[in-house]
Design a protein around this nucleic acid. Structure first.
Lengths: 209, 209
DNA sequence: CGGCTACTATGACAGCGGTCATAGCAGCGA
DNA sequence: TCGCTGCTATGACCGCTGTCATAGTAGCCG
């Protein structure tokens, strides 16, 4: 999740995602975003002429792409890919963060949903697109592992649902219990959905950026 | 979820929960809560001398009790209680609402988590208590159905995680797909955890208010 | 140099939010 | 009637936020 040193615009989008996932959309100010990104305040209205809504939407889009791309990396890290192994990696990203950096952060997509789904329809659409992209990546991975097509999308949705909910509970309890529980209880169900042998070799798949 | 006509204090707590679940905590104003509850604005500082934080905490507590008590009603509504049947009822509460009233509302506990978990620790504790109460009610119900003790709490956590996450996705997609998917995919896993015959008769159990 | 474009720098503004201060009122016991 | 208590009624304050207006700078082309 390193933000690297891209242009100021990209840094602001990245910083917006970071702040939103900690404080929520409403409590994240534009001046705060600029300061966090070490970007000049004047650049806000230059790069995001449509204001906060545009910035939030781009932050959500960034998070969706990030989550989707991350799936391919998880697959590459697994010796032999299995659905439960993928889900365990998805969960582990969060347990690692919580154990090393505390329970301050959540999912920016979830935050945008809670704060804007009713009010700002463009943001709701951005959230929908983010979930779609993420789900598509996971479903593609499942299909590559031999999960039948008609089950891969539902199971991907279930994985993401459980993960998002477990993140909420983990933050509330300041404990990774809900996350590890989800991984442990859901794993067998996911592996049981594999009917054909996995296609292809080690890496790659239908997931790309 | 009928609010009945209790005292003004209770109405304000109820209205706070309603507004929070729609707009989020940050976007919900105190004047707005009073107006929604048709309660005098002056009563705010009288009943909630600790300000917004107290009101939010009580709204979260109310939601936790509501969700917990609801479990017993779901059980009573089932001809013969099964874990999958209980989960289906929990999901159905949301699909019913979304199909009849639109996708404006979410879970107030989730909203409080996203908006306050990092900033207001008392609210975080209220959220934790709400999840604990809800989980306890579901776990108790599972145990009564014959799920072994060491599995009932993890499975209850998984059910609530999946439900919360599916609620987020449903709002984003303006579709109940994620909710029905969770119920369908998780049902068999839950029923498979039953090892002993259910104890007791039709209603009742270890869940109370 | 002029002129143009990309970006930055401030200051102001209008609105809203939670909170406080103060005062009013109704009821009731003595 | 007095005084006390529970509740209501307003108005003001201060801080913050998103946004706009305006002006400035840097670089590049001709």
């Amino acid at each position: 999740m390193a933000g690297a040193e891209r242009g100021p615009r990209e840094r602001m989008v990245f910083s917006a995602a970071q702040l939103i996932r900690r404080e929520g959309v409403g409590a994240t100010g534009m001046r705060e975003v600029a300061a966090h990104a070490r970007a000049p305040r004047g650049s806000l209205q230059h790069y995001f002429p449509d204001g906060k809504e545009q910035l939030v939407n781009e932050a959500v889009g960034w998070a969706g792409r990030y989550a989707g791309n991350r799936v391919a990396r998880f697959l590459a890290a697994l010796p032999e890919p299995t659905p439960s192994g993928l889900f365990a990696e998805m969960v582990r990203q969060w347990t690692d963060e919580y154990e090393s950096e505390g329970f301050d952060g959540g999912c920016p997509v979830a935050a945008a949903t809670v704060d804007c789904a009713r009010t700002a329809d463009s943001t709701r659409q951005a959230v929908e697109a983010a979930f779609t992209r993420w789900t598509g990546a996971v479903a593609g991975a499942l299909a590559d592992m031999g999960v039948p097509e008609e089950r891969s999308r539902p199971l991907a949705t279930l994985m993401i649902s459980s993960l998002e909910g477990a993140i909420l509970i983990a933050r509330a309890e300041r404990s990774v219990r809900a996350l590890t529980t989800a991984a442990r209880e859901l794993g067998p169900l996911l592996d049981a959905a594999v009917t054909r042998p996995a296609k292809g070799g080690g890496s790659g798949g239908s997931v790309g950026s």
